[in-house]
Amino acid sequence: MMKLTRIQDHAIQALTAGIVGAETFDRVFAGIRFDEIEGTMLYAFARNEDVASDIEDGYSPLIAALASRVLGKQIDVVVVMPKVLQ
């Protein structure tokens, strides 16, 4: 496993916000943290279970593509967990 730096986490967040827009980012992604990668899987934490599910279902391909750019490594799967399971 490779822990992401704060800069990598923020870079993924910034690129995501630039694509989905400020309003959607603030509503859906508030409090998200992109945490670590294992192989081609990116693990992230969202504020609750509903939001985690919404992000996984609706934004995983986008996040995987953006994370691949930021990390310089292929990301195929994004797993978003609620912070309570952290």
Score class of each variant (00 low, 15 high):
49 E>L: 11
13 Q>H: 00
65 A>R: 13
69 R>W: 00
20 V>W: 00
5 T>P: 10
76 D>W: 02
79 V>M: 03
27 R>D: 10
16 T>Q: 07
78 V>I: 12
52 A>H: 06
73 K>G: 03
59 Y>P: 01
16 T>A: 08
29 F>D: 06
60 S>T: 12
60 S>Q: 04
9 D>R: 04
19 I>L: 10
10 H>V: 00
53 S>E: 11
5 T>R: 09
10 H>T: 04
43 Y>L: 14
62 L>E: 11
42 L>R: 03
78 V>S: 09
38 E>M: 12
21 G>F: 04
48 N>H: 15
34 F>P: 02
74 Q>P: 01
10 H>G: 03
5 T>S: 15
18 G>D: 02
79 V>R: 13
36 E>M: 02
33 R>K: 04
77 V>Y: 04
28 V>Q: 04
25 F>L: 01
40 T>D: 13
24 T>K: 10
50 D>G: 10
86 Q>H: 06
35 D>R: 15
42 L>P: 07
1 M>P: 10
58 G>W: 01
40 T>H: 11
19 I>G: 00
7 I>F: 04
74 Q>D: 14
40 T>R: 14
22 A>S: 08
67 A>D: 08
29 F>A: 08
82 P>K: 06
45 F>C: 10
16 T>L: 15
45 F>A: 13
47 R>V: 11
8 Q>P: 09
46 A>T: 11
60 S>P: 01
50 D>C: 08
74 Q>F: 06
84 V>E: 09
86 Q>M: 09
6 R>Q: 02
80 V>F: 11
51 V>D: 04
6 R>F: 05
2 M>K: 15
34 F>W: 13
2 M>A: 06
23 E>V: 08
36 E>Q: 12
14 A>K: 09
73 K>C: 02
22 A>L: 09
52 A>K: 06
19 I>M: 03
66 L>M: 11
83 K>F: 06
50 D>L: 09
28 V>E: 10
52 A>R: 01
7 I>H: 07
38 E>C: 12
72 G>I: 06
27 R>E: 11
10 H>C: 00
35 D>E: 15
38 E>H: 12
18 G>R: 02
82 P>V: 00
85 L>A: 12
79 V>F: 05
22 A>W: 02
25 F>G: 02
66 L>Q: 05
25 F>D: 08
37 I>L: 10
43 Y>N: 10
28 V>H: 02
79 V>L: 08
34 F>G: 12
65 A>I: 02
56 E>Y: 07
